[in-house]
Design a protein around this nucleic acid. Structure first.
Length: 273
DNA sequence: AACAAATGCAACCGCATGTCG
DNA sequence: TCGACATGCGGTTGCATTTGT
């Protein structure tokens, strides 16, 4: 038994939307709000599939959309987030206010891929294309975080270690999680300093630290939220103060690593509403 | 000017996931 | 707990526009 289609295809328009259709959809949503996409087309007098209406609204008609070219900062943020999350376009879009997942996906495929390839970076793995040690990406590979090239080739081993440790600390602060370092680049002397990082939920120690912060009522300098770490300090996503503001209801404060509460990854909690 | 190739982007499709009775 | 339905997501397609010859 097959699944019923989302709409009656025989009686729906397809292809580009007309101005009249846009107008109908916009005025209907203004009057009634989003939601119930299945019944919306009929109610709004549109010969469109509900899915199509939703997509048109989200990707084109929403009033909070930021049209126009991507900035250099947005480019770099997309690259950084893609290196962490892969093709999780909706989550990446959640970190770029006014941008849609579809827009970012298209932009990635048309601009950023080429940009990375020109830099000699494989857009899929965020590693140097010439890197002979690049392993096949398996489903269980660690997330990689690229820091871009830096010229520390001539450093002695101790200095390099120091730099790497600082990077490791930065990432640890960035995600409030344990970061394991794989010294691939050091072993092979690869100029592109992609660090192979494995991200795991915060250790008990860090969890205890958060609780200590709660008890003391003071924010912890090392506890930087994801938003701040990505330069979105002013955004609504900044949650540096969450632990403190939770106050006596601290029981409701669970560790939330990339939306990972109780060990279950909840991508949606990362999205910017 | 005409045509072909390349590019960019809106929209579609199928599957996964969430919700509710 | 299960099944049906609604919604969301990511990959892909198709077409309009731009660029090159």
């Amino acid at each position: 038994m097959g699944r019923s289609p989302c709409c009656e295809k025989a009686h729906t328009n397809k292809g580009a939307w007309t101005k009249e259709e846009d107008g109908r959809l916009m005025s209907y949503i203004r009057a009634h709000g989003e939601g119930c996409w299945r019944s919306l087309p009929k109610a709004a007098g549109l010969l469109r599939c509900g899915k199509s209406c939703r997509l048109r609204w989200i990707n084109y008609l929403r009033p909070d959309l930021k049209r126009g070219n991507f900035t250099e900062e947005e480019d770099e943020l997309i690259i950084k987030l893609h290196s962490l999350l892969g093709n999780k376009w909706s989550i990446i879009a959640g970190r770029l206010p006014g941008r849609t997942d579809n827009e970012i996906k298209n932009y990635w495929n048309t601009h950023i891929r080429r940009k990375l390839l020109n830099r000699g970076i494989d857009p899929a793995t965020h590693r140097s294309i010439n890197d002979p040690s690049t392993p096949e990406r398996s489903t269980n590979t660690a997330t990689t975080i690229s820091f871009g090239a830096s010229n520390n080739k001539n450093m002695n081993a101790a200095s390099r270690d120091q730099v790497e440790d600082q990077k490791s600390m930065a990432v640890r602060g960035m995600f409030g999680c344990k970061v394991e370092r794989f010294p691939l680049q050091e072993q092979h002397g690869i100029p592109d300093l992609n660090l192979e990082l494995k991200i795991s939920p915060p250790s008990c120690y860090q969890y205890q630290q958060q609780e200590a912060v709660l008890k003391s009522g003071r924010n912890h300098s090392a506890a930087v939220c994801f938003a701040c770490s990505l330069g979105l300090k002013s955004s609504n996503d900044c949650s540096c103060g969450d632990y403190v503001s939770a106050g006596k209801n601290s029981a409701v404060v669970q560790h939330d690593f990339l939306g990972l509460k109780g060990g279950v990854l909840d991508y949606r909690s990362l999205e910017m509403k």
